[in-house]
Design a protein around this nucleic acid. Sequence first.
DNA 1: CAGGCGTGGAG
DNA 2: TCTCCAAGCCT
Length: 363
Amino acid sequence: MIDMLNAEMITGFQEHLLHWYRKNHRDLPWRRTSNPYYIWVSEVMLQQTQVDTVIPYYEEFISRFPTMHELARAPQEEVLKRWEGLGYYSRARNLQSGVQEVVEKYNAKVPENKKDLLSVKGVGPYTAGAILSIAYQKPEPAVDGNVMRVLSRIFLIDEDITKVKTRQTFETILYDLIPEMEASAFNQALMEIGALICKPKGPICEECPLAHLCRSKAEGTQLHYPVKKKKMKPKDEAFVAVVLKDTQEKLLIQKRPEKGLLANFWEFPLLEMSDTQEDPLKVVKSYFNKKNHDLIIEWTKSEQTVTHTFSHLKWHVNIVVGTLREGTLNLGKMSQWISEKALKEYPFPVPQQKVMSIVGIDY
DNA sequence: CAGGCGTGGAG
DNA sequence: TCTCCAAGCCT
């Protein structure tokens, strides 16, 4: 398929790439260690997340959970707290259960073979390849978005990179390209080129060590690659966030379900609205009336609305503040009253933090 | 396979 | 303000 892959070309590819990497790579915290657990943590954090965002989270996470044992026995609440703001929180839950698996099943030794590694929760083809190559020096491919962008431009590969099949195409090519003895530097170099040189919008081909091999550069078609199917627009959803205080200034919060969006995070009770036009105050009153007719609550509607866009959803959150004067709310175990000061101990996702900021809660 | 799953930065 | 993007994995 790739007719350019003769021995001479392969050697040239490796030499130029590695030479550039030795000279130009960034000094990143996870590049100062070969501890497989640390490499693992960094790779999970880096999934769909930029390096600059990850650095402080990585430092704090490692300092709080310096070994797999400490992460394994920590309360999930605290793990989520350390992940707060990073997004894709299933990564945190899966990382912890993956680490628990490794502690119990493999005596706290991260597996060195691909089969066992891939069976660990939260470890997919990319992360397995990254750990095997970077921590264990094994010549395994680690194909992420950077690698696909770089290689698709060099070899004019026009398959849709959102498809699994396409990732496998790149892995096949890489088994021929990866130098037996320098898989770690090679894989990281390919990603570093993608991040610093072969950028999505403005590739800096003048500085690229592989420019002389790059077929899209020769054609001037760099920006046609990689080929990627367009994403759908986020769907609109409307809610009311109920910020309810009791007479002792305590706030009502509830825990989200253990599966799905923002799983296990805390929030001010969110009521679904049928459409954006509905009156939030009306929705709230009817909800609490139905629950308990003896409640006396003073309601104030905030003029402001929080909007928050996820990968696939756009939330419109109306805010209603209330004070419970009389009556008792029947609370399930997913709800509780807590002081404003205690809020800091609980993990809250960004849309809820926006609500706090609007109603003047210090978090 | 397609769709669910966050957030912040860049243009 | 909006679009696209960033070291993907799970179901």
